[in-house]
Design a protein around this nucleic acid. Structure first.
Lengths: 245, 245
DNA sequence: ACTTGAGTTCCATTTTATGGAACGACTCGG
DNA sequence: CCGAGTCGTTCCATAAAATGGAACTCAAGT
């Protein structure tokens, strides 16, 4: 089913900095004969996997794709439970929260809860980030064994640093970052898993560095920790480490 | 490219009340030989369009699909502008807001903004609703010509009622529903379009009926109307009707 | 009018999908 | 422990696709 793989490759092109695609974009990005690219996009259009923007030749994901992320969320008890916790914490503290999943060396947010404070971190749902460069990602990587992480990041220059960070996360029970991915933005993240389905998600709160002191941070960690601990207990996540602040 | 169509049909199965699919579900729903269903799901799995839940035979949309809704949002200036307006209104009034698009006779939310009030309407992003049964849908249908609506709803028993409702919407410049789709929930919706791309979106606020009187409702209409009017002006939406309260 | 670039269509060849049937894995009830 | 039922996968010859080079259209830009 090489068409399917080609179609998937096209969809993968809609990355962080590519809101739309033309036939020649696809030719360039995937190195495909343009006859194929043309027919492929046409077929994807007819299947509602893509749609053209206005009457231009630019394509974006089609209506069919709009509901799938929601279906993903609905398929997972774990995501639902985690969303309740983060929604509550986001509402209480006024900061933006996420639920994220890991996919190899990347993490993606699957749900977001906008903060209510005047100064808040803007949601970036649907953007893939390198797992090792964010608190969310590290909280998820920390769930993997030391060896698994080594295998995943074999040959990666950041492996040594990462290992140290992860053992700290494993010990603390939460991941923390201060102004790492974005200047002025701090994040806390706690992961929890559903052993029945092998899923792991990260509960994350992001907030402006200038607005929160250590005490405020610890209150948020405690709030997430409490919710995560209950989820871990209910679903039987024996690997869960209760955060120690 | 019939595989693509079959794959699209499978994805379409992830509707409102179907969080996951097995091979036999696909056989039943699509009337496909089970050999094909088995191979199709396998291929879709390998293309990351689907993934299995844990080690069961149940499938849900794959990681590849998670970012596409976000890519759709990013591809549209109109959605971005509309999101700003609704986020602001949602934050000001504390009620939940949406941005929705129409797809034939259905509407889907593409972005949502959770309310902050203790009693608020829970977001239902990614659920397809019949356009004629919601304020959001009617605000979008009202943009179509009378004839287009007739063609779209030809033979539909609700056509007569709908026509009346739509002419009211056209005249008022906004759509309103009280306890229509959900008991106790009211909604206001205003649509605006980008003539450059032929897109139309609906800006919508939903709120508990018991919490808002006519004055409060009119304030929200005014807030949405102001934002929508600015978008209409900036993008050149000449069909926009400024709401009269 | 000529060039350039993007997109589509054509056609013979190769590759892939199709679906009936056989097969393997698992569950339930006796 | 057996057999019926359900579910999913694999096999195979046939039928139906995708493939890619080249020709073609269309719309700028010079």
């Amino acid at each position: 089913m090489s068409v399917l793989n080609n179609a998937a490759d096209v969809l993968r092109c809609f990355g962080n900095d590519c809101p739309d695609l033309t036939v020649s974009d696809v030719v360039k990005l995937l190195g495909m004969p343009k006859a194929n690219a043309s027919r492929l996009l046409k077929a994807m259009r007819e299947a509602n996997m893509l749609e053209t923007i206005g009457d231009s030749h630019r394509h974006r994901p089609g209506r069919l794709m709009l509901d799938l992320a929601a279906a993903y969320r609905r398929s997972s008890l774990l995501i639902g439970r985690a969303s309740e916790v983060v929604a509550e914490a986001s509402s209480t503290f006024g900061h933006t929260g996420y639920i994220s999943v890991r996919d190899g060396k990347e993490v993606t947010a699957v749900a977001d809860f906008q903060g209510t404070n005047a100064l808040r971190v803007v949601s970036n749902i649907g953007r893939r980030l390198p797992a090792h460069l964010s608190a969310t990602g590290r909280s998820l990587l920390a769930r993997l064994g030391e060896e698994t992480v080594h295998a995943l990041y074999a040959g990666h220059s950041a492996l040594h640093d990462l290992s140290e960070q992860l053992s700290k996360v494993r010990h603390q029970g939460f991941a923390y970052s201060s102004q790492e991915a974005t200047p002025g933005v701090d994040a806390i993240a706690i992961s929890v898993a559903d052993p029945r389905t092998d899923e792991a998600v990260s509960l994350c709160i992001v907030y402006p560095h200038a607005l929160v002191d250590t005490k405020g941070r610890d209150e948020m960690i405690a709030a997430l920790a409490k919710g995560a601990a209950r989820i871990a207990e209910d679903l039987g996540d024996s690997a869960f480490v209760a955060p120690r602040i």
